[in-house]
């Protein structure tokens, strides 16, 4: 038992992992069908947008900043996909996917330039971008538009034998995994940890920051495709729902808002915990407005628990 505790203390995402296990068990108790493998593709399909918004928020936080606009960017991309590209005849995957991902990356990099070059405060830059994206989404598709091309539906259910959501989450995870094998993630963590040290040692801090926000944009783009796959219609009104969930997943996953410390795996657990809360409360027949209340409680309590009970190592170091 002590060994398990020690293991958990060394993992910043320990609380999110424990929470996931507990919530998963509760979900199975409340609705036993949750454990039925035939439901898993659909479950993953509804989870994918959460996970990807969380992924999208992670690189900027690791770099010592913050991107609040990734949620609306996800909705914006799904709106562009369904309400612009499909009617224009560009809905097939080989046209739409590259266009959407490039667009999303550019939006992210604009945030990065505003922060790293123009030197706006990250909250100012990305809240500005948040409103711009919400406004654009609602202008482009004031009312929900149904998807004309249906190929993407498989991404939220199954493609052949595999759950389609594994492709979207998996694509983002693979990109991160590959980046970890390059010098980029080390440079990113060092920049977030101490930008002075990184700059003084010859890291191109400006480029690293811009790329971090760009990478967040790319993940948000994948999230937008996953969202369109799930809904099969453009729901610009969703923008506000996702706006802060990503950040909540990051924080719950044990990533430090000060930058330089955290992991994508933690964000995945954080996002899954949030998703499971939602599922549990919905299955238990709780009103939807109370779900947000529950998010808030879990987030605050979760961060407190991680910072006190589970971080003996950190405290020992200070003394």
């Amino acid at each position: 038992m002590n060994r398990i505790f020690a293991f958990l203390q060394q993992r910043p995402y320990a609380f999110a992992l424990l929470l996931c296990i507990v919530l998963l068990a509760l979900n199975i108790i409340v609705s036993p069908s949750f454990a039925n493998p035939t439901r898993w593709p659909a479950i993953l399909g509804t989870f994918a947008p959460f996970a990807l918004v969380g992924f999208a928020s992670t690189p900027s936080v690791l770099s010592g900043g913050m991107d609040i606009s990734v949620g609306p960017l996800t909705t914006f991309i799904s709106v562009i996909f369904i309400a612009v590209l499909m009617p224009a005849g560009l809905g097939s995957w080989y046209f739409s996917v590259p266009i959407l991902l490039i667009l999303a990356t550019i939006v992210g990099m604009i945030n990065g330039i505003l922060v790293a070059v123009v030197r706006l405060h990250p909250v100012v830059a990305t809240v500005g971008m948040l409103f711009i994206l919400i406004g654009l989404s609602q202008t482009i598709a004031p009312n929900p538009v149904q998807a004309a091309d249906r190929w993407s539906a498989g991404l939220a259910r199954t493609l052949g034998f595999i759950p389609g959501a594994l492709l979207t989450i998996g694509a983002a995870a693979l990109i991160w995994f590959l980046l970890r094998r390059t010098a980029f993630v080390s440079n990113l963590l060092a920049t977030g940890d101490s930008d002075q040290s990184a700059f003084g040692s010859g890291v191109n801090v400006t480029a690293v920051r811009i790329l971090a926000y760009g990478l967040g944009g790319l993940f948000a783009g994948i999230g937008g495709i996953a969202l369109a796959a799930l809904l099969q219609s453009s729901e610009s009104a969703l923008a506000t729902t996702y706006a802060l969930l990503g950040l909540a997943a990051v924080v719950l996953g044990g990533t430090s808002l000060l930058g330089g410390r955290g992991s994508m795996l933690g964000t995945l657990f954080g996002a899954f915990a949030i998703y499971l809360i939602q599922q549990l409360l919905t299955a238990g027949g709780v009103q939807s407005n109370l779900i947000q209340f529950a998010y808030g409680i879990v987030l605050v309590v979760g961060v407190l628990v991680s910072a006190t009970l589970l971080s003996a190592r950190q405290r020992g170091k200070v003394q």
Partner: peptide
């Protein structure tokens, strides 16, 4: 230059600190 302030990235390992900035943005 070894600057006056002690410049290390505290959560990174000693090895990573020693080679900090010697790589390209992506290239090792």
């Amino acid at each position: 230059t070894v600057f006056q302030e002690v410049l290390t990235a505290s959560h990174q390992s000693v090895l990573q600190n020693i080679w900090l900035g010697s790589d390209g943005i992506f290239r090792r």
